[in-house]
Design a protein around this nucleic acid. Structure first.
Lengths: 336, 336
DNA sequence: GCAATTTACGCAAGCGCTTGCGAAACGCTG
DNA sequence: CAGCGTTTCGCAAGCGCTTGCGTAAATTGC
């Protein structure tokens, strides 16, 4: 049997409440008593039952990180950053993978509803913009969204500035003399994809070019989808000379399809990918990418969440971080 | 305020215990009463407080998956497989990343000690073979190890048969006429690395070749380490004609270093990597690998753990799964 | 139609902890 | 040394749930 507070209290000859206060660094315990209790607890390798503690204190010091895509290296980096920040603040994270399934997003939310965690961070995901609003979470102030925007800003978000990122990417490709730039974005089931499109369009317009809607594609974030979208594109009416692909895994598939088709990058098609990670750097040729500010995304989201939990901040804040264009071989025109 | 069991009981005009039994599908509740309670609970969107439930029932239906390396795609696949299996059995997993830090392994173990989870699965990690033994976990029967073996088999393990895998890999390279095969394995802080080495040695010996210890290397599992180990190797006394690299990330770095050095794969050096995942398949050239049985590793480990938890199995079982050699370009000799 | 089962439900204790409140003990001032 | 404020500590309630046990009601058998 596990050793409990009561046991420690008995051994120390004091009340449970005193032990509790001593162990939690709370005032109201004499120095000597405290030391004695600490010693006994240590000697007996006492571990507080976190369930009981959470139940009584209505606080668990755990937060859920609900992740839509565990395959994306960028997401993993965000998680690691959250974890690092959480550790500093005395919180533990529990990672929940939803595989982009809405029902799993919902089921993991029950961790919040059932008080197992003090707050939750969503990285990506679908649910976030829609159902959630209807549900009782609409003014729940223990939720932070990463790279997702809720309608009417119901939740606090930490975002990559996709609009500006895409703007930069288009600018870069234009400067390299690519004129027909295809945009491959994610499924348009969330607001950030519209951001990407708007950045893309703005950049074209500001350069006096017109937007061809036929060059804008949406697809799921996986290798196969990226592969397929290329096949679809080269059979279309308008053949681009370059791609901006905004999801990590899609990008990989796209590049594979290009090469499989016997085309060369960047000679036949230039490619700008997304996410400065092992995948995009290892693939041949190394990809020019919009580097996601993963470190900051993670850190900021955790900090926002803690402020929300501790009621030092109102809901509905939004923080926007700028991605950086990292230029590698895949987008450098030979003719420059 | 959250709605509680008591509230439901009041609304339904029954005792809390009846509500509890109704909601948990336990016998002792009349059909009508049960239906009525279920209805009321549903209407009020009742969510049981899992902390209270866990405290009272001494069971949380959560298990911790303690992961040493979150960057490795193979590990992620294992996690996904565990998750899938867990869902079927009504368990939720919480993922804990240790980044190979022993102290974090220890701190996550407190999830077990403090009753927040019913069991734990370790994927990789250091602690597992050593400290843990000394600690009070030595006969804890709620722990399963993946790809790790505890000394004297203190824990139940699910293992890849590295010995056999390496044997196959060596055989393959020999058949392709590579004679001086270097082995790059992980840090020798755990028993499975010895398995690899023994498989490697056996295969050589069985082919009548002698083992050159200078061709056996150990390194951490990351890109940089793989890069460095190649630099070290080509400056050594014995230059190999091929590599078997048994860690995913190391392998990537190794390949990069080979290419960076102006060498060609497989012409100058053949490479057999580890793990049939996006990284090894996307890199140029696609790598021959020992495909880890990730799906089975995950599923088996979860099933073992549940059997342990439910006391249907004694501790100290071991299951060994065979990796499959997946032959791609990186190890095919031009001269065959 | 009555005793013997079975079924349905309530009571209350208890899981291990936190915390508000009051009592006791202490030190200080004048 | 009386009177005061502090500090230290114990008491007990309570967090929301589960579960063993007891009793009343429903069911069965003959």
């Amino acid at each position: 049997m596990q050793i409990t507070l009561k046991d420690i209290a008995r051994m120390a000859g004091v009340a449970e409440s005193t032990v509790s206060r001593a162990l939690n660094d709370k005032p109201g315990v004499g120095k000597e008593t405290r030391l004695k209790i600490l010693k006994i607890a240590k000697e007996n390798n006492y571990r507080p039952n976190q369930l009981a503690r959470g139940l009584a204190a209505k606080k668990t010091n755990m937060i859920a990180v609900i992740l839509a895509e565990m395959d994306s290296p960028g997401n993993i980096e965000i998680v690691k950053s959250i974890e690092k920040a959480a550790e500093k603040r005395g919180y533990q994270i529990i990672l929940c993978n939803t595989n982009n399934q809405e029902d799993k997003e919902e089921s993991y939310l029950s961790l919040l509803e059932s008080n197992q965690v003090d707050g939750a961070i969503f990285i990506g995901g679908k649910l976030v913009g829609s159902h959630l609003l209807k549900a009782s979470f609409s003014q729940d102030n223990r939720i932070v969204l990463v790279n997702r925007l809720a309608e009417e800003n119901f939740f606090t978000s930490v975002l990559t500035d996709y609009s500006q990122g895409l703007y930069k990417a288009v600018e870069h490709l234009l400067k390299e003399n690519f004129k027909k730039i295809a945009l491959v974005c994610g499924n348009r089931d969330n607001l950030v994809e519209e951001e990407k499109i708007s950045g893309y369009k703005n950049a074209l317009r500001d350069s006096g070019l017109e937007v061809n809607e036929e060059l804008i594609f949406s697809t799921a974030n996986n290798r196969q989808a990226g592969y397929n979208v290329f096949l679809e594109i080269i059979e279309g009416d308008v053949i681009p000379d370059s791609f901006i692909s905004t999801r990590e895994l899609t990008t990989i598939g796209l590049v594979e399809a290009i090469k499989m088709g016997g085309y060369f990058i960047p000679d036949d098609f230039a490619v700008v990918g997304y996410g400065d990670n092992i995948l995009t750097s290892v693939i041949d040729p190394p990809l020019t990418v919009l580097g996601e500010p993963v470190e900051k995304l993670g850190k900021s989201s955790l900090e926002f969440l803690l402020e929300l939990i501790n009621e030092k901040m109102d809901s509905q804040q939004i923080k926007v971080l700028t991605p950086e264009l990292i230029i590698r071989e895949s987008s450098i025109s030979k003719y420059n």
